[in-house]
Design a binder for these strands. Structure first.
Lengths: 351, 351
DNA sequence: TTGAAAGCGCTAACAC
DNA sequence: GTGTTAGCGCTTTCAA
C-alpha cells in the first residue's frame, strides 16, 4: 500500500517527463510516444498512482456518473428499477451511484443531497420518491439535470417517467370480472406515493364499468407490507359474503393474501383468485405463481436515462411526462369464479 | 432554475464582500459578522448557489462519504448489509453511496472503481465480493481505506469482517441430528464466494460428529437460486431413500425446496424438515416459517464502519479479521424426524 | 472581523 | 510529440 497523495507531478518526475505527458498518458487523450507512455505507466504503477477525481472534475468536465436516490432499498420495486438503471447507465458508458435516503426525505436532507450532487454527478434520478414539498422545491431549483421515476403526488416542473397505474388496475379487475367474479376485494397500500390511490381508481372504474356496485366492506387498508396483506385477507375472508377474488395494491401484500388463504385451507384459484401489482421476482415463484401487473422497468429506466443524458448534454428535454402502460401478467393465481359464487347464489335465490 | 456555474465569486460580488467572507459564511467556519453573513446568504439564495463539491474536496478535505461496492443488488443478503451500512454510516455523520458492479469484478472494472473512489470517498466497503485476483491486488495497492465484508476466497492484507459459516452450518445440522434425522440432504450454492463450501464443511463435520456417514447422493449442486433449490429437492425426494431433512446453503434455495416438497404433497415439518441460511426477510413469512441462520448484519456493518473510520482517521486498524458467529433461528420448518425414518426402518430390519 | 495571495491536482490551449 | 502557461472554485495561510 503506497502513501496517499501521489500526484501526477510525482509520476512525471520519476518518469523524467513533463506533467503534461504524464497527464496525456493517463487520460489517453492526445499524442504520446510509445516510449514516453511506457515510462509514465511504469512510474505510475511503481508509485501506486491514482488520479484525483476531484481535481479532474474541477476542470468542469463531466463526471460520467449519474446518481439515483431512493427511499428504501429493501423494496423489490425500487430494486428492480435501480438494477435496470445500472444497466442502462452502463450502456451509455456512464456509472451509477445509489443513495439510500432511508426514508428521510425532509427538506434538510434534500439540501444535503443536492449539495453533494453538485459537481459530483452529471445528473440525478429519483426513484419512487416520497418527498416533502420543500424537498421538491429544492430539486426544482437545482441546476443539475434531474428526472423523477414514478412520482405522482404533485405537479412539478421536473421531468417524470411514470408507469400507468389506473389502466393496469382496471385491466386486472376487468379480467376478474370476465372470469365471473362479482365480489372482488381490494387491499390498499398506504398513500405516501400516490400509487395505491391510482390503482384503487382503476379497481373502482372496472367495477363500475361492469355494473358492480362498490362494497366498502371489501376494501381493506393495508400498508404495502406482506403482514398487512395477510391481515387484510383474513378480515375479508371472515365476512359473511367473502370475496371470490382479491386484488392487492402490490405483490408484497398479495403474498400475505396467499398465505392467509392457504391458512384457511382454501384453494387458489379454485376457491379464490388473487392478483398483485409490481411483478416482483418472488411473484413468479409462489405456489401458484401470482397473476400480477408490472411496470416495464427496463423501458422506463431507459427512458429516464435518455431524458437525463439529453439534458446533461444541454439539449432541451424531449418530454416532460413519459408514461408507460403496465403489463398484465396472467399466471395461475386467477381462475373462474367458483360455482358457489354470489352470482350463482343470487340465481338460486331467484329460482 | 438558475444557470449552472454560479460560483462563490458571483455570490461575493453580489453581496459586496470578499470571496473569503462568502466562503466563511457558506462553510460555517471562522468569524463572520451577522450583517455580512446575512448579505451573503441572501445573495447565495438569489443566485441559487450550490458549492462545488469537487473544488472543496480538492483541498484535501474529507468528503464524509463512504462507498460500498456490491456485485448484485437483487440479492437479499447484500441488501440487508447495504441497508445496515446506510444506517451505521449515518450514525457517524457520514453518507453512504452504493455502486452496483453488476457482477463485473474484472480487473478493468476494478481499476475504474478505484479511480473513481480516489478523492471522492473517504473509504470503501466491499460486500460479498466475488472478484478476480487482479481486482483484489488493485484494491490492496489502493491508498484509500478499504474493508471487505464476507470475503473468503483468498488471503488478503485488507481488513475483513466475516460471518462464521462453518459453525453455523454445524449447529443447524446438529439440530437436525438431535431431532432424530439421519438422512440429511444438502443443497450447495455455487462456489464463487466460498461461502457454500464453508457451509458444506459445517454440514459434513456435524454428520461425522454424529457418526453418520456422508452419502454423496444426498448432496445436490445448486446455484443459490430458488429454481435450483426446487430442482434439487425434487431430485433428492425422488431417491429410493429420500432425506427426512434438507439443509440448503441459502434461503433462496430453501424456498425452492419448500415449494418442491409442497408439490409432492408432503408436510413440513412432519414429513420433512428444511433449513436455510441467511434469514432473508421472506424467510419469516413462508408457510411454515423457515428455520435458518443469519449473519448479524447490524453488528457486522457496525464493525466494518468502525474499522473503516478508524483507518480514515489515520489510526491503525484494530484488527485484520473480525469474525461474528451466526445466529441460529429456529422456526417451524424443522421438527422431529418422521416415524418412518431410516433409523426406524433399520430398527425394523434388525427386528 | 475581513481581505489578498497562494495553491490544491489536473487539463485545455497554446507554443516549441 | 512535448513542454509551458494559465486557471478551474475553493480554502488555507497570513496580513491588515
Amino acid at each position: 500500500m503506497k502513501k496517499a497523495g501521489v500526484t501526477l507531478v510525482d509520476v512525471a518526475k520519476l518518469a523524467g517527463v513533463s506533467v503534461m505527458s504524464a497527464s496525456r498518458t493517463m487520460s489517453g487523450e492526445g499524442y504520446v510516444s510509445e516510449e514516453t507512455r511506457a515510462k509514465v505507466q511504469a512510474a505510475a504503477k511503481q508509485l501506486g498512482y491514482a488520479p484525483n477525481a476531484a481535481a479532474r472534475l474541477m476542470k468542469g468536465g463531466k463526471t460520467n456518473v449519474i446518481g439515483v436516490v431512493v427511499n428504501d432499498l429493501t423494496s423489490s420495486v425500487v430494486n428492480c428499477f435501480v438494477t435496470a438503471l445500472s444497466e442502462e447507465v452502463r450502456k451509455v458508458g456512464m456509472d451509477l451511484f445509489i443513495y439510500n435516503s432511508l426514508g428521510d426525505m425532509g427538506s434538510g436532507n434534500g439540501a444535503r443531497i443536492s449539495q453533494m450532487l453538485h459537481g459530483l454527478w452529471d445528473g440525478l434520478v429519483y426513484v419512487l420518491p416520497r418527498m416533502t414539498d420543500d424537498y421538491l422545491e429544492t430539486l426544482e431549483k437545482s441546476s443539475s439535470p434531474i428526472v423523477l421515476i414514478n412520482y405522482f403526488r404533485h405537479e412539478t416542473t421536473l421531468p417524470v417517467v411514470r408507469g400507468d397505474n389506473v389502466n393496469g388496475a382496471h385491466d386486472a379487475v376487468r379480467h376478474l370480472v370476465d372470469l365471473g367474479h362479482r365480489r372482488i376485494g381490494f387491499v390498499r397500500g398506504n398513500a405516501y406515493t400516490g400509487q395505491s390511490d391510482l390503482r384503487e381508481r382503476g379497481y373502482m372504474s372496472a367495477l363500475s364499468d361492469a355494473g358492480i356496485e362498490l362494497d366498502p366492506a371489501l376494501v381493506y387498508q393495508g400498508d404495502f407490507s406482506q403482514q398487512s396483506g395477510f391481515d387484510g385477507a383474513r378480515e375479508l375472508l371472515a365476512l359473511d359474503a367473502p370475496p371470490t377474488a382479491i386484488f392487492a395494491a402490490n405483490d408484497g401484500m398479495a403474498l400475505g393474501v396467499l398465505n392467509a388463504i392457504r391458512e384457511k385451507n382454501l384453494r387458489i384459484p379454485e376457491d379464490i383468485s388473487v392478483i398483485g401489482f409490481d411483478d416482483i421476482p418472488t411473484a413468479a415463484m409462489t405456489q401458484p405463481p401470482l397473476t400480477t401487473l408490472r411496470h416495464p422497468f427496463g423501458e422506463m429506466a431507459q427512458a429516464a436515462v435518455q431524458e437525463l443524458t439529453r439534458r446533461i448534454q444541454g439539449q432541451p428535454g424531449r418530454r416532460q411526462r413519459i408514461e408507460f402502460p403496465s403489463e398484465f401478467i396472467i399466471r395461475a393465481s386467477t381462475g373462474p369464479a367458483p360455482a358457489c359464487s354470489t352470482s350463482r347464489r343470487s340465481r338460486r335465490q331467484r329460482a
